[in-house]
């Protein structure tokens, strides 16, 4: 069972790490979650990427959402903001999301084949 004790343990681990949300530091992963994104399968992408971040205990990585980006035919769209640079991934699914976490977020290599540049 998922217990409150587990939640408290997470709290203790995270305590020193709060405040990054508003800062310029760290990595922000943003998933398009308007009607178009949701219908195209954005939720499993967001869930898989969050799970991968959680399982790997990655610090300073936040996963959140945005509305319609205006490119509905390329949804699900994921934007990665890191070190002042933005990478836009298109036509994503859960597996591609996991690979972006491993290759891009952990190892620092952009997954070029999923980027908007490779798909337009």
């Amino acid at each position: 069972m998922k217990t409150i004790e587990e939640l408290k343990a997470i709290r203790e681990r995270m305590k020193g790490n709060v405040g990054m949300r508003d800062s310029e530091k760290g990595t922000h992963i943003v998933v398009g979650m308007a009607t178009c994104g949701i219908a195209a399968g954005a939720r499993p992408v967001l869930n898989a990427m969050s799970e991968e971040v959680a399982k790997r205990g990655l610090q300073d990585v936040m996963v959140t959402q945005t509305g319609c980006i205006g490119l509905c035919r390329l949804e699900p769209i994921v934007e990665v903001y890191r070190d002042g640079e933005k990478t836009t991934y298109v036509k994503m699914d859960a597996e591609k999301g996991r690979r972006v976490i491993v290759d891009h977020i952990v190892n620092g290599n952009v997954v070029t084949e999923y980027t908007i540049g490779a798909n337009e």
Partner: peptide, 22 residues
């Protein structure tokens, strides 16, 4: 329970998801 740790922290989100599944 979480005090000043945001619920959007990936590990907390994962806990919430599994808690609901259970």
């Amino acid at each position: 329970v979480m005090e000043d740790v945001p619920l959007s922290t990936p590990e907390v989100v994962f806990w919430i998801k599994e808690n609901i599944e259970e």
